[in-house]
């Protein structure tokens, strides 16, 4: 298997006011062509930074970002732009991801205008219309401006823009989180259909485990910039190995209140600027022992395709309390 994209020991830091915030701390991952990988994390987990790093929108401080075998850091501006034809991103807030002064049609057609400048204007319009129709929109919407569309249609247009240059990888950064439940389901279905049709690889980033479960066949869990667990969907949801994954699963609100006995876990009080010597989750972990605060747990392979960064995974602490 050759990887489509990969992060190798990636470190991304942000500096400001004399402090350093390590958003990603030695994160590695591999995305195979046509694969759908889910990334789960809460605020401050570094999941949006991960999306931006993969697309070369933020620079790596250490480690490498590879796409199609090429290291993004070594590419020149023009080469990087050409490579971007093969990737696309869909943001959380559909209205904000469109230029308020441009028509939807112009925005959706922009990647084509950049990467296929030889294409005649009429042909480009036709491609935009066809794709709008495929994403369930009236092609006449091409003449509208983003503020005239509500959230659902706007996100459909964002999907059309992401798909128009036939990319190999689409990154969805909380792409359905801002939508109403009834509309969210429509967009999830649309993404599933498009994936089946085009075989495009999907990196689906979300805080919502139920949504990720529907869209991703492999899931990676981030906490404070570190990968704490990565596993195939079935394994992760049925038998999580990391206590944080367990906590996330137990926290999903359920309609049957009795069934969701959310464990009482103290909230995160550590500053995002603080660097964790041991495990990042130690302060909130119900299973933490003294060594957890002293030694950073390595990401160990525990089963085919499943790895976890927990000193006590062998004891099955996370799995047992289910």
């Amino acid at each position: 298997m050759t990887a489509l994209a990969a992060l190798e020991q990636l470190v991304v830091e942000f500096r400001g006011g004399g402090r350093v915030l390590r958003a990603l701390d030695e994160v590695s991952l591999v995305i195979a062509p046509g694969e759908s990988l889910g990334v789960v994390g809460e605020s401050g987990s570094g999941k949006s930074t991960l999306a931006r790093a993969l697309l070369g929108l933020v620079a790596a401080d250490r480690g490498r970002v590879l796409f199609g075998g090429a290291d993004l850091a070594t590419l020149g501006g023009a080469e990087l732009r050409r490579l971007r034809r093969r990737m696309a991103i869909i943001f959380q807030n559909p209205a904000a991801s469109f230029d308020p002064r441009q028509t939807i049609g112009d925005s959706v057609g922009e990647p084509l205008a950049v990467h296929e400048p030889a294409l005649a204007r009429a042909a480009r319009r036709a491609r935009v219309a066809a794709l709008l129709e495929r994403t369930g929109l009236d092609p006449a919407l091409a003449a509208r401006r983003p503020h005239e569309l509500s959230g659902g249609p706007c996100q459909r247009a964002a999907i059309a823009r992401a798909m128009i240059a036939s990319p190999q990888l689409v990154v969805c950064d909380e792409a359905v989180s801002a939508l109403d439940v009834s509309v969210q389901a429509q967009i999830v279905n649309l993404l599933l259909e498009l994936r089946r049709e085009n075989g495009v690889a999907l990196l689906f980033i979300s805080h919502n485990l139920a949504v990720v479960r529907r869209l991703a066949s492999r899931v990676l869990v981030l906490y404070r910039g570190r990968v704490v667990e990565v596993a195939p969907r079935e394994a992760l949801y049925a038998a999580p190995r990391h206590p944080y994954t367990r906590l996330l699963l137990d926290s999903v609100p359920s309609l049957v209140p009795a069934a969701s006995q959310a464990p009482r876990v103290p909230p995160e009080t550590a500053s995002p600027f603080a660097r964790d010597r041991g495990c990042a989750f130690v302060a909130r972990c119900p299973f933490a022992i003294r060594r957890c605060a002293e030694v950073a747990p390595p990401l160990e392979t525990v089963a085919p395709g499943q790895a976890v960064a927990c000193l006590r995974w062998r004891e099955g602490v996370a799995t047992r309390c289910a």
């Binding site: 509309v183 279905n189 949504v211």
Partner: peptide, 27 residues
């Protein structure tokens, strides 16, 4: 009923499309 069916949960089936409500909330 539609709102309840459209909710994704940790045990919603994976082999059928999510039961979405067509259309959009009124603007």
């Amino acid at each position: 009923a539609g709102l309840l069916a459209a909710r994704l949960t940790l045990d919603s089936p994976l082999d059928v499309p999510v039961a979405a409500i067509p259309g959009n909330p009124p603007g």
